[in-house]
C-alpha cells in the first residue's frame, strides 16, 4: 500500500467511524436533561422579568445554513415569550433570505400556541446596511419600517402599540450566526443603551463572553448545548413527550447525547493519533 493510499484509508476510516457513531447514537440516543448554566439562565431570567404583554424584539440574523443550531434556540425562546404573553417583534439585518426562515419558525410556533399575527407578533423584513438601520431604528422605527413583511402598515399592527423607537423595547434578543452581533452591541447597546441578550452559534460563543462582565449583554445562549439548556427551562412538556414517544422533532436536547458521543469519539481519536505519532517518532529514532 502506498503512503498516499494509507493516508486515504485512515481518513476514510475516521469519516466512517464518525458517521457510524452519529447514526447509531441518533437511533438509540434518547433525550438529554441538561441543567442551565448561569450564562444561559441570565437570558431566561431577563425575559421572565418582563411584565406580561411587554414587547420583545428578536433580531433573527441567520439563514438556513445555521438553522440546525439556531432554530431550536429560537423555538425555546418563543415558547417562553408565548407563555408570558409577550408581543414578539421579529426583524433581520443579516441577509435577504433570513426573513423567510424567521417567518416560518415564528408562525409555526405561534400557530401551535394559538397566537394571532398582528396582535401577538409581527415579522418585519430585511434591512440592508449593517449598523445604519439600527441607528435609524433608534431614532424612528416607523420611518424605517413603514410596513411589516406582508405590507400591513406598521401603525395598524396592535403588536406595535407604544413602539416608536428601538429603546421602547425593554429587551432585544439577537439570535445570530454572523457578525451582526457587533452592530447590535455598538449601535444598539453602546449608542442607545438597548438591553441585549445573545443567541449564537457555538463557533461564535467565546467571542462574546467579554461583554458579559461589563453587562453590555445580559446573557449568552451558545450553540445546540445552550439551546438544550434553554429547552430544559421552557420546553419541559415537549421534552417529556419526546421521551415518551421517541419522536424528538427539532429538539436540541435530542441531539445532545449524539453530540456527547461524537465528542468522546473525537477525543479518543486525538489521543490515538498522538500515541501513533509519538510511537512513529520513537521508531524513527530507533532505526539506524
Amino acid at each position: 500500500m502506498t503512503p498516499e493510499a494509507r493516508k486515504n484509508a485512515v481518513r476514510w476510516s475516521v469519516f466512517a467511524l464518525v458517521g457510524a457513531v452519529i447514526t447509531v447514537s441518533l437511533l438509540f440516543g434518547g433525550v438529554s436533561d441538561f441543567h442551565p448554566t448561569a450564562v444561559v439562565r441570565k437570558v431566561y431570567d431577563e425575559v421572565e422579568a418582563l411584565p406580561d404583554g411587554s414587547p420583545i424584539l428578536i433580531s433573527s440574523d441567520f439563514d438556513p445554513g445555521s438553522e440546525a443550531e439556531l432554530k431550536p434556540m429560537m423555538d425555546a425562546v418563543l415558547e417562553q415569550c408565548w407563555r408570558k404573553n409577550l408581543r414578539v417583534i421579529v426583524m433581520t439585518i443579516c441577509s435577504p433570505n433570513s426573513p423567510e426562515l424567521a417567518d416560518s419558525i415564528v408562525r409555526a410556533s405561534a400557530d401551535a400556541h394559538g397566537k394571532v399575527y398582528g396582535t401577538d407578533y409581527a415579522v418585519f423584513g430585511y434591512l440592508a446596511g449593517g449598523s445604519a438601520p439600527i441607528l435609524a431604528l433608534g431614532q424612528d422605527w416607523h420611518a424605517v419600517y413603514k410596513t411589516d413583511r406582508g405590507g400591513t402598515p406598521c401603525r395598524d399592527l396592535p403588536a406595535m402599540k407604544g413602539i416608536s423607537k428601538l429603546t421602547d423595547f425593554p429587551l432585544c434578543l439577537e439570535i445570530s450566526a454572523v457578525s451582526t452581533i457587533d452592530y447590535w452591541i455598538l449601535a444598539g447597546n453602546a449608542k442607545y443603551g438597548l438591553k441585549l441578550g445573545l443567541g449564537v452559534t457555538a463557533v461564535m460563543a467565546t467571542d462574546y463572553y467579554q461583554y458579559l462582565a461589563t453587562r453590555q449583554v445580559v446573557g449568552i445562549i451558545g450553540g445546540v448545548s445552550g439551546a438544550s439548556q434553554y429547552e430544559s427551562m421552557t420546553r419541559q412538556d415537549a421534552l417529556r413527550k419526546a421521551r415518551e414517544t421517541k419522536e424528538a422533532g427539532d429538539l436540541a436536547s435530542a441531539r445532545m447525547p449524539t453530540q456527547s458521543a461524537i465528542h468522546v469519539t473525537i477525543i479518543l481519536l486525538v489521543v490515538l493519533g498522538n500515541i501513533l505519532y509519538f510511537a512513529g517518532k520513537r521508531k524513527e529514532k530507533a532505526s539506524p
Binding site: V203, G222, G223, R255, Q259, I262, H263
Partner: peptide, 11 residues
Amino acid sequence: YTVMGRESLLI
C-alpha cells in the same frame, strides 16, 4: 466550541 458547532451541523 468550533468543533461542537460543526458537529451540530453534521448531526
